[in-house]
Write a protein that binds this DNA or RNA. Structure first.
Length: 515
RNA sequence: GGCCCGUUCGUCUAGGGGUUAGGACAGCAGAUUUUCAUUCUGUAAACAGGGGUUCGAUUCCCCUACGGGCUACCA
């Protein structure tokens, strides 16, 4: 690892479906790390698997990163930089990988293999019958059809005859491979445990293993921050850097803990969201599902009403923690505080409830006027009210809700007269006596001079006193009469905002309609 | 099965050889708002188990258990 290199990290998803929140977190940590060190954050698309290519997935990834505010400063969809192209299929067409495969073969670290997929499947089945696991490695490769076992002439004949082949890495028989993971410390694996991974497929495409090493090297990547699922193949990658003579510029590795499902165990998957009722993806959309081969809809945080800041904040805390007790971080604070050393090693179960809490916190931090314009955007029908009214609605409601849309959903009565009245409250409080009181309050309000919260409260209490009613016993009922709902914002501020005409009209309606 | 990684309240986590093991979400209880879905206060809740090392271990080491990941011409 050479010193003083400009920090360069990459997020390298494959376009096989919608980017899920675990992927977003990986991107986020890469972004934070890059910004913290004044480096570059690159988006590279790993589309070496032609069979699993999903149209639209790449666009989805780009849009998701944009919405989250974690934009790469280099790469697909964000302006090409000095290392273009950033898509592996295009890099393959430019001949980026073939030369290195050749180099590996020439140096004796890789070889041609002619075994077909079917033949290998047979081997696997045979081994399984014996209770063993087949592995293409130092002990089996001599028995298989490859340039190590076959004669030179035979190999040449097969290639000249146009037979398809793959290139496999030749793993050393018995060698300690070690690397220092920034999150996990030293990881040591013996090469005897590694199999001869395919580096180049018979369709002419490199596999992930070759492509990511070549790309990270040519793109001058200094730190590889990726999911834990890559940990087992990291020793192979280390070996490839060594074989290619790039050990001195090998990136530092960091393997992130997985995001686990909230119930039971296992990593968070697509289905968990539908089953448990929370989004697993940043954006709502519909893409081809690899497994079923059919288009599939999925729900996103954006469409569910989450603020990107809240989403990011929640994600940042799922696996990382600052040294103090702070939980709410602006993006700038996250950048300042972030460090890989403080990323935890164990998987984190996702908690949908806490995610809502984060959104609530961010909602409260927003200005009432901003909430008002967000409200109009989501519910154009409220646009008929003037801005001051909407802003006041938001001021009153923001303490009660988690999402902008709930301002409308729970405060529909700010825009329409109620048609149904809270059943429980009506049953408990609606009787001849309270009815008389409501009628009296209506009359008192009708002749009210100053229409403001303090005056209205005074009038309300005065009426209660005059009719010998305990105010506490009728306040909620009164609220139900004017709003239909048993709960809501501070009562008399709400009444003041609704206005005299509306209140009188609604009280009359209540008197007529509630039985 | 093999290999690798992990294990502090229900959840996210702080801490770290001697602490009342801290915070947050969720829970519960009170208060207040003469209504409430807000707010405040309080409360319950954890170092997986067993061996070492040590004066002392939750913290370091080993084993076991449990969980997860990987084990494709997928990434």
């Amino acid at each position: 690892m050479s010193e003083n290199r400009r920090v360069r990290v990459r997020f390298a998803p494959s376009p096989t479906g919608p980017l899920h929140m675990g992927g977003v977190r990986t991107a986020l940590y890469n972004y934070l790390f890059a910004k913290k060190h004044g480096g570059d954050f690159i988006l590279r698309i790993e589309d070496t698997d032609q069979d699993r290519f999903v149209p639209g997935a790449e666009e989805y990834i780009i849009e998701a990163l944009k919405w989250c505010g974690i934009e790469p400063n280099e790469g697909v969809g964000f302006g090409d930089g000095p290392c273009a192209p950033y898509k592996q299929s295009e890099r393959k067409d430019a001949g980026v990988y073939a030369q290195y495969a050749k180099q590996l073969i020439d140096s004796g670290n890789a070889y041609y293999a002619f075994d077909t997929k079917e033949e290998l499947d047979e081997q696997r089945a045979r081994y399984e019958k014996m209770g063993k696991t087949f592995s293409y490695n130092a002990v089996t490769r001599q028995e298989l059809k490859n340039s190590l076992a076959l004669s030179e002439d035979e190999v040449k004949r097969r290639i000249d005859a146009g037979e398809t082949y793959v290139v496999r890495a030749k793993m050393p028989r018995n060698e300690e491979v070690r690397f220092h993971d920034l999150i996990r410390g030293w990881v040591v694996v013996n090469s005897s445990q590694l199999d001869d991974k395919v580096l180049f497929k018979s369709d002419g495409m490199p596999t992930y293993h070759l492509a990511n090493i070549v790309d990270d090297y040519t793109m001058k990547i200094t730190h590889v921050i990726r999911g834990e699922e890559w940990l087992p193949s990291a020793p192979l990658h280390v070996l490839l850097y060594r074989f290619l003579g790039w050990e001195d510029v090998m990136p530092q590795f960091s393997h992130l803990p997985l995001l686990l499902r909230p119930d039971g165990n296992g990593k968070l998957s697509k289905r968990d969201g539908d089953r448990l009722g929370f989004p697993v993806f940043p954006l709502t959309g519909e893409l081809l599902d690899i497994k079923s081969g059919k288009p599939e809809k999925f729900t996103g945080y954006r469409e569910s009403g989450y603020f990107p800041e809240a989403f990011i904040n929640m994600l940042a805390l799922l696996g990382w923690h600052s040294s103090g007790n702070q939980e709410l971080f602006s993006k700038e604070e996250l950048i300042n505080e972030f460090s890989l050393e403080r990323v935890s090693k164990s998987g984190a179960k996702f908690d949908a409830e806490k995610t809502k809490w984060f959104n609530q916190q961010y909602l409260r931090m927003k200005a009432d006027s901003e909430l008002a314009s967000l409200l109009v955007k989501e519910f154009p029908q409220v646009g008929s009210k003037d801005n001051a009214y909407l802003t006041e609605v938001c001021r009153l409601m923001k303490e009660k809700v988690n999402f902008v849309r709930e301002i409308y959903e729970q405060g529909t009565y700010f825009f329409e007269d109620p048609t149904v009245y809270d059943d429980g409250v009506v049953k408990k409080r609606w009787n001849e006596e309270s009815k008389k009181f409501i009628a009296a309050v209506k009359d008192a309000f009708a002749s009210a001079g100053d229409w403001n919260a303090a005056e209205l409260e005074k009038t309300f209490k005065g009426t209660a006193e005059a009719t010998g009613t305990n105010p506490g016993s009728v306040m909620q009922l009164f609220r139900v009469c004017v709003s239909g709902a048993g709960g809501g914002p501070v009562l008399f501020e709400m009444v003041a905002l609704l206005g005299k005409e509306t209140i009188i009209r609604r009280l009359e309606a209540a008197l007529n309609n509630i039985k």
